[in-house]
Design a binder for these strands. Structure first.
Lengths: 232, 232
DNA sequence: AGGTGTGAAAGTATTCACAGCG
DNA sequence: CGCTGTGAATACTTTCACACCT
C-alpha cells in the first residue's frame, strides 16, 4: 500500500525518542479515525503533550517524512512509526500470574492496538489453572517452557507476587525470552542482553508524593514546575 | 550579602534522582527486615540495580548520611529517604474505575508500604456501586467531590477507560487534587501546577518490541539494552 | 585501609532559532 | 509564506577518579 522505504534508516534512535514514539503513534491513530489526512508538528505535539521542537527532532530520527509548509501525512507516519517500533510483525506475549493485575492485563483490549497477541496465561495456583480468562485457558506455570515454545512467545509479562518474580524471570530467560515486562516490586537480575522494563505502582505514587510535599512545603513558592527563565 | 541562613538543605533534587529514591528505599527496607545494620554504596547499588557512583551521587543530594570507610546506616537512610519522599505523612488516595485494574490497585497491599491510604473507590457503573472491594464500599462517581473532601484525598488514581479519563481528571483538578496517576491510555490535559504521571501498559510493550526487533535485525550487534532500569 | 562525597569530564536530551524547501 | 528539519546552545545525567575522612 505504501512504497518501500528508501533505505534502512539510521538505527541509532535515542532512547528518549523511542519512549515517545508510542505516544505519537496513539495520537496519530486517533487522528486517523477522525479521517484527518495531514497534521502539523505543532498540532500533533499538542495532542501528544510535548512541544513541537521535540516532536520534530524525534521524527527526524526516523527520516524526513514531513512536507515543509504542510505537515505530516497521518497514514504514512503511522506506518513509519509502526515499522520502527516493530509493530508490523506480531509479538506473542505470555502473562504469568493471573491475579487481579494479570486479569486486567489479559483483558486489556487495546494491548498495542495490534502487534501483540496474548498467547498464554500461566499461574501457580491449581484452583486458577483451567479457568478461562479473556478467552484463554489458564495453564500451570510448570508448563511455561512448553507454552513459550509452542506459541513462539518472545515477550514475557510478570504479574506475580514479588517472591516469585525472579524465579519466573529465570525461566523466561532460560527458554529464550529476552524481553520482560515486570510488574512485581523487585529488581530482577538478568543476564546481559535481556531487556527488562519495570512498571511499579508504588514507585509512581512515591514520586507523586515527593512533588506534592514540595508543593506544600515551599508553599506559595515553587509551582511544582520550574518557571522559565529569560535569556537572549 | 550572599549568605543564605534560612534554607537547611538544597531542595533541588534532580528528577532522575527522585525517581530512583523509591527503589533504594525498597532495597533498604528489605535489608532492614534481614536485620542488616549498615551497607556500602557498592552493595546497596547492586541490590537496587544501579552502579555505585550513581547511588552515591543520588544520596549526596539528600545530605551527607554515610560514614567514610564504613557505609550507610540502614535505618537512618530509610528514615531520611522516607522523609524526603514525603512518606512520613499519610497521603489519601482515591481510585476511580473499579475494573480489573482498579481492583488490582485497591488490593495491592504493598501500596507504598505505609505512607498511602486508599480512602475511596469510585465507579460509574451502578452495578459496581455498593460492592465491597478490598474492604471498601465502592461509591458512585457522582460523589467524587464529596469523597475527596471528606477524606482529604490529595492523590487521584484514574483507572477508567480512555474515554472517561479526561473528565475524571477535570473533576479531580476542580476539587483540588493536584497529583494524578493515570492508567488510561490518553494524554491528560491539566492546568499548570497539577502533576500527572502516566503508566501505560501498551507503551511499555511497544518499547520492548522496538528493542526486540533491533536485536533480531542488527543481530550480533547491539547488546539489547541495559537492564533493570525504568524510564519515565 | 576502606569507602564516601564530589569536582570535572563525558554523554544525553531538550530547546532555540532560522535556513530553506514546497 | 508556513512549516519542516537541523545545527548550535543549553540543560540535565551519568560516569570517572581521587581527595579526604573515619
Amino acid at each position: 500500500m505504501i512504497s518501500r522505504p528508501p533505505r534502512p534508516r539510521d538505527r541509532g534512535i535515542p532512547e528518549a525518542t523511542v519512549a515517545r514514539l508510542p505516544v505519537y503513534l496513539r495520537a496519530l491513530q486517533a487522528l486517523q479515525e477522525r479521517r484527518t489526512l495531514t497534521i502539523s508538528s505543532e498540532a500533533l505535539a499538542a495532542a501528544a503533550g510535548v512541544n513541537s521542537a521535540k516532536l520534530r527532532k524525534d521524527l527526524s530520527h526516523l527520516g524526513s517524512y514531513g512536507t515543509r509548509g504542510v505537515g505530516y501525512e497521518v497514514e504514512y507516519l503511522v506506518y513509519q512509526i509502526s515499522r520502527e517500533l516493530g509493530l508490523t510483525q506480531d509479538w506473542s506475549v505470555a502473562i504469568v500470574g493471573i491475579g487481579n493485575l494479570g486479569r486486567a492485563l489479559a483483558n486489556y483490549g487495546g494491548f498495542g492496538t495490534r502487534g501483540f497477541r496474548i498467547a498464554a496465561l500461566l499461574d501457580a495456583d491449581p484452583t486458577m489453572v483451567g479457568q478461562s480468562v479473556a478467552g484463554l485457558k489458564v495453564g500451570h506455570i510448570d508448563r511455561l517452557e512448553e507454552a513459550v515454545r509452542d506459541n513462539g512467545v518472545s515477550i514475557g509479562v510478570i504479574a506475580t507476587p514479588a517472591g516469585s518474580a525472579q524465579h519466573v524471570a529465570n525461566r523466561f530467560v532460560e527458554v529464550g525470552v529476552a524481553s520482560i515486562l515486570n510488574f512485581a516490586p523487585v529488581v530482577l537480575n538478568v543476564p546481559e542482553g535481556v531487556d527488562v522494563r519495570k512498571v511499579d505502582l508504588s514507585i509512581e505514587l512515591q514520586i507523586l508524593a515527593f512533588h506534592a510535599q514540595r508543593r506544600a512545603d515551599g508553599d506559595g513558592r515553587e509551582p511544582a514546575d520550574r518557571t522559565g527563565l529569560e535569556l537572549t
